[in-house]
Nucleic acid binder design. Sequence first.
DNA 1: TCTGATGCGTC
DNA 2: GTCGGAC
DNA 3: GTCCGACGACGCATCAGA
Length: 528
Amino acid sequence: MIISTSFYELSRLCSKLESESKTIKKIDLISQFLLNIQPNETNISILLITGKIFPDRSEKTLNISYKTIHSLLKKSSNQQVLFKKTYNIIEIYEEFQKMARLSGKGSYNQKKSILTGILTQLPDIERKFLIRMILGEMRIGVSSGVMLLAIAKASNIDSDLIKNAYMIYGDLGRIGELAIHKGFNAIKKIDIKLFRPIKPMLAEMGVSIPEILEENNQNIIFEYKYDGIRVQIHKNFEKIKIYTRKLNDISEMIPDLLSRLKNEIDSTTSILDGELVAVDKTGKPFPFQDLMRTNIDRTKTDLQYKIFIFDILYLNGKNLLNLPLKERKEILSKISRGFDLAKTLKSSDPEEIKEFFQSSIESGHEGMIGKKADSLYYLGTRKKDWLKLKEDFSLDLVIIAAEWGSGRRKEWLSNYHLAAKEDNSYRMIGKTFKGLTDEEFEQMTEKLLSLMIKQEKNVVFVQPKVVVEVVFNEIQRSPKYPSQYALRFARIKNIRYDKSPKDIDTIDDIKRLYQNKFIKKADILKNR
DNA sequence: TCTGATGCGTC
DNA sequence: GTCGGAC
DNA sequence: GTCCGACGACGCATCAGA
């Protein structure tokens, strides 16, 4: 007789994983679990443990998150349930599927009632992890990386092979199922297939030009870094589609560009890697937030989409991932019948490279990437083979409020509201939670509590006394903050206990910075 | 029919 | 997307 | 070196309810 695994057992595993800090022990626990459950539970267990519910390469979503769950818990907390139902893993998963299928009028309320039904019947541990699964934040120290190792252990297959299969296939649950129940040959067989996107290689953050040159032994190809959406183009004769970094199909966003590309790529089948941007008719790029503005009236602007292509992963039936970059680049330029290539420079002269970087910035782009010329294409991972360099800025700002953290930041004020000066008051221009060490969080929490004015919900408002030096990559127009501006990728560089809030940067300073930068960008409001 | 809340996907 | 911590 | 989990900005789609 087949005994299905209860959701309680899965939750107990999660609980053990949460309290176990050693990765090796986590791997042990997971692999034992995976070997003990039924074969048809493998796939979904892997997804649920990693907090995914649906595979990376999937259009399904629950459309339920923190606010909804929070409101349900408040309402149902005083409800008595007489008959508790026990769920097995598959039953829980079917409920998720059911919720994902709902749409249209009444669907949200229906989802809420399904969820309330489950939540009120589940004991505490199970409820806790069910919620975390829905939020996609398991907080048990297990994400795809550790899970891959656990699958490798359970199936006794080399972990690099498992990892590669996952990066190609984009569905960890299914890879685990194949590895454990079909074995080595099934995993070995997984190969690139057109119109099934693969995980693109990522760049690490670089520090300086000399560092990049040294790290990569001087043999570097530099490339403009464009501020857009990373895209992967799949082409099979007349058929063409593009996918994002997270494997979603966004072909419909740019139909006219795609039909042009069809003729510009000289191949029968191919997979190309590039960055989608929006430019005006002089070639100036639009700000990132305008690239995302897809429902504007395009007849009122001269916005056009472009993809700057910088790599080729597959051509005419052949996998090119294991060719060195410089060979891939050669192939790429050979098959171009007019598509846009990312601008590159091959040099080891720091001065020349610096000029190249500056020209990228002057042209309104984000910076550059230095790529080791003989590096292979590593799917889905950040490697020192690709190092990116961006322009950044810094401002002295004051903390006017802070939010209590969660998880390992639970005891600390973790997320700080930043403000610049305007006349005699302070205007908020964003939040940040990055840049402090544990020790600094500890001290900062104490300091801010001593300055507390009031607390509302999760937010502690404080006297504007603590000055921080904040670095960021861009100033954006903000529809949300009264100052009209917001920082992109803000993080704290230094705490300036020495500096008075009277002497911090002003909204006018920010406005000036914004305008200087956006002279180099295209303007969405300008008529054709 | 419109507005606000919520969630998701891009960076 | 960035950052610090843990392994 | 690698992985994980802290959470930021925006714009758009969808749904509930006035």
